[in-house]
């Protein structure tokens, strides 16, 4: 049995704004019957772009119905511009939280709203091929959708992604693919300044720090471009490295060496460091 908050129960048993909006001028849709939940969002938008009225019809479980109800309550009275900034998190927060396996219900609300905004702007409905590469074939989820939901909600594991947009939740064949996408995302987003330089270091300490920064920070970023880096030697403040993979022979490799490797090591280990290629 799911642990639903009282607000979720209330919005499920007494859904607000449920039914057909007769004078709707903008419609947004998300989900499908095959997926097990679907939402049709009906809006009445003034010429100035204010959402005057909103109603919904939802096929789905209790939290899907409650999320739809919350969505309509949240956007009524807002302008379309304001509504465009809304994310699934606001829907989940409005309901006092959702069980983690049910977060995809709040994402469905965000997707229906996005669809409505596209149509209001006169854009054609999103097609999967312009949304990125198809990752989850069972639920039709692309890499860009995965990246978006991961960034908005701080997701780091494939299971979390499944909870939020179902990807990987049926046959599971794409779970590794999802994890790779998340890992790359983390490597990019990793803050530059993580390890503060110690005021005085022994050679061994410096060497260990250089190794840590190279393997945990620099190598993943080079890996995004298909390159890799090997530490050859640390002699005082001189760090000798070899660039491998796509980096070797790349005409920009000297730039990489100075701008990425040396800059990072100077910031994080020792301002006196010089990086040279073996």
């Amino acid at each position: 049995m799911w642990e639903y908050t009282d607000t979720v129960r209330d919005h499920f048993l007494n859904p607000r704004n449920a039914g057909v909006l007769e004078d709707a001028n903008v419609i947004g849709e998300a989900g499908s019957l095959a997926c097990g939940d679907a939402l049709k969002l009906m809006l009445k938008v003034t010429p100035e772009g204010v959402i005057e009225d909103a109603k919904f019809q939802t096929f789905g479980c209790a939290s899907a119905i409650a999320s739809s109800s919350a969505l309509t309550e949240l956007i009524k009275g807002k302008t379309m511009e304001e509504a465009a900034k809304m994310t699934n998190k606001e829907i989940a927060d409005y309901l006092g939280g959702l069980p983690k396996e049910k977060m995809h219900c709040s994402v469905m609300g965000e997707e229906a709203l996005e669809d409505a905004i596209r149509r209001w702007k006169g854009l054609p409905p999103k097609k999967h091929d312009e949304e990125g590469r198809l990752v989850c074939k069972c639920f039709g989820v692309t890499d860009l959708q995965i990246i978006k939901v991961a960034q908005e909600n701080g997701l780091t594991t494939a299971d979390e992604v499944t909870n939020f947009i179902k990807a990987g939740g049926a046959c599971g064949a794409c779970k590794d693919d999802i994890q790779t996408i998340l890992d790359k995302l983390r490597a990019i987003e990793k803050p530059m300044v993580e390890i503060k330089p110690a005021p005085r270091m022994t050679n061994v300490q410096r060497m260990q720090k250089v190794m840590t920064i190279l393997s945990q920070d620099i190598a993943p970023r080079l890996a995004l471009d298909g390159g890799s880096i090997e530490l050859i030697d640390v002699d005082g403040t001189t760090v000798v490295v070899a660039l491998r993979g796509a980096c070797s022979g790349c005409h920009a490799s000297q730039l990489t060496l100075k701008n990425l490797v040396e800059k990072t090591l100077r910031e994080q280990v020792d301002p006196a460091i010089n990086v040279v290629e073996a």
């Binding site: 499920f12 097990g36 899907a64």
Partner: peptide
């Protein structure tokens, strides 16, 4: 047809 099982069960639970 056209309704979802969990929603049915929770309504019945009432």
């Amino acid at each position: 047809e056209a309704v979802e099982g969990e929603a049915l069960l929770l309504q019945m639970d009432q």
